[in-house]
Design a protein around this nucleic acid. Sequence first.
DNA 1: ATTCTATTTTGTAATAATTACAATTTTGTA
DNA 2: TACAAAATTGTAATTATTACAAAATAGAAT
Lengths: 146, 146
Amino acid sequence: MISMYKKYVKILKDHAIIITSPRLDILKFLDEHHTHPDVEEIYTSLKKKHPSLSRTTVYNSLEILKKNKIIQSLTISGSELRYDIKEGLHHHFLCKHCGRIFDISITCPNMNRTVAGGHHVEEVQGYFKGICKKCQTKEKERRNNG
Amino acid sequence: MISMYKKYVKILKDHAIIITSPRLDILKFLDEHHTHPDVEEIYTSLKKKHPSLSRTTVYNSLEILKKNKIIQSLTISGSELRYDIKEGLHHHFLCKHCGRIFDISITCPNMNRTVAGGHHVEEVQGYFKGICKKCQTKEKERRNNG
DNA sequence: ATTCTATTTTGTAATAATTACAATTTTGTA
DNA sequence: TACAAAATTGTAATTATTACAAAATAGAAT
Ligand SMILES: [Mn+2]
Ligand SMILES: [Mn+2]
Ligand SMILES: [Zn+2]
Ligand SMILES: [Zn+2]
């Protein structure tokens, strides 16, 4: 049972972060859901198995995971932060129609930049916004069938 | 007096947007302040010369200017939207220390992309975050002088 | 210039995301 | 097992943004 968390226990230990079940659960959730959820989605999902969970704990846990660069937050939506396990730099696409956020794997010479305009760079985020593949298909079908 | 607004009147006319003084003022402000201000900064500045101005009007005006692609909003900060007159695509740098946002002119092959991962792209935003040139200098001085 | 109507502005109230904070609980260590 | 530091919880406060209705205004028609 606890073995399901072994991987996440190790991550926290390696970063000298105190091991708690909210932290393990959040890490596991993000590892298993690469959908870039917001706090509310994470909270609602985990609350089912862990009814005493507090929203504040989700905020706090995400904060410490982020400070340790285990996860990253995306500001792509403009209204709420989205969270992502940090494994390999990649860019993101937000569909204005369905709201989903997709990973985009494109080569980008600026991805690993440490300097830009003379400033010291610590984070790089590439955001693309438009209409996703699936929403375009649906739209075409809607036009054809009426 | 009204001639100061000629340029902005033309922009609105060209887009068939009704000409109102809040819209002209906001456009002028963004044209003269390339600091990527948020709603509050715009509102506070313009309120001085135009005391009846409402915050809601600032939100509404920015919205219509954005819909017409005259301006763009940046989600870089993660807490509030920042606004920018849209003239030539460029990337942005946010200083985590002083909070300022700078234009970054770097070549980027993805800047004019219309497709990414099979999705239809309408907007591209490149965000860099770290410590700006000036804040780094200050920090060095602080360390040297004590 | 005057009238008229659609659109905009204004002010206030509502909502949504996030942060602050103090009491309670838990973790890691001794 | 006992203890202190750190985390979790629940609630209240704050901040950014949106909703909405009444008053004002822009632009077209007269
Ligand atoms: Mn991702
Ligand atoms: Mn800019
Ligand atoms: Zn979609
Ligand atoms: Zn700075």
